[in-house]
Simulated scan of single mutants.
Amino acid sequence: MSFTLATWNINSVRLREGLVRRLMQEEAPDILCLQECKSPVDKIPLEGFRALGYGHMVARGQKGYNGVAILSKLPLEDVGDMDFASLGHARHVAARLENGVVIHNFYVPAGGDKPDRAVNEKFGQKLDYLTEMRDWFHGTRPEKAILVGDLNIAPREDDVWNHKQLLRIVSHTPIEVEHLAEMQDAGRFVDITRKDIPEGNLYSWWSYRSPEWDKADKGRRLDHIWATPDIAAAGHDSRILRDVRGWEQPSDHAPVFARFDL
């Protein structure tokens, strides 16, 4: 089985239904994982997606916040979700393909503005979420698994526009990077994007606060595609569709792609 997979924080699937459909028409990924759908599952606009061949969906949602969905041309089996840190949020869903590969779609908490759990509850929730992810993957030791999503952490120095300036900014602080690395190690996940593109600055998010986002290029790589070692070699052709960030009324994230030949 060969398939192209994409992950994209859409920042409201109903508001940006047209952008999702445009991506489906122009790029035609076999599987599209969305985060921050901001919609109950029954309100996700499936009719237009089905018309483009995406007849399968596994999703978790809630009104106005969070939400994750896996849209697919290929048959999917819903294999559940986890409520890490007991937040009661729709931040994870998993689906199994017919070849046995399990896709985990995550939307890790952003963590607020201050990287100090003593004064910022959201930052503590983010660290707790990652810790419980680590413990879960350590216990399950997944095989034939792909993990994707907005993990809200840019781990490498070249995953941000300025490493030194962002060391005290949420998404790139040492404690977040450490927590992410521990979780990645627990599941033995391989970063497919960086396996394919090992060198150079690489971003998937540019703030709405910068109207000159493309020129200023103050980006961060917050969106990831990982795979377990048994299938990591099958992942290739990674790319980030930077131009999508410039579409009309865009998400602040760009889609990340990879292809798997399994």
Rank of each mutant, 00 (worst) to 15 (best):
I225T: 13
F189K: 04
R239K: 13
V190S: 10
Y129S: 08
N105S: 08
K215C: 01
T173C: 06
Y208N: 09
D159M: 06
P255M: 04
H56E: 07
M82A: 11
H89R: 09
V119A: 02
D81R: 07
F189H: 05
F84Y: 12
L52H: 02
E26C: 01
L15Y: 03
G187Q: 05
G88Q: 01
D223R: 07
N162S: 14
P229G: 14
S238C: 15
W136H: 15
D237Q: 14
G53V: 03
S12E: 04
V79D: 00
W226S: 10
D150V: 01
S251G: 09
L15I: 12
L97G: 07
Q165P: 00
V256G: 10
S39K: 01
V13Q: 01
V177E: 05
Y65Q: 07
Q249K: 13
E199K: 15
G219D: 11
P229I: 13
R16C: 04
E212S: 12
V256L: 12
R239W: 11
R188T: 10
S238E: 11
R194T: 14
K215A: 14
V256S: 09
V108M: 05
L19W: 00
Q125M: 11
L151S: 09
D237E: 14
G149V: 08
C33Q: 04
A94P: 00
L23G: 00
V160H: 08
V58P: 02
E17N: 12
R188A: 15
D158P: 10
S204K: 02
G187F: 05
H89K: 11
Q25T: 15
H104M: 01
G111S: 05
I44D: 09
F260P: 10
L222G: 09
D128W: 06
F257C: 06
S86D: 13
G48F: 03
S210M: 04
S204Y: 04
L5H: 10
L180E: 09
D128T: 10
L151F: 11
H179S: 14
S72I: 01
W213V: 06
K218D: 06
A232N: 12
D217A: 14
W247D: 08
P45F: 06
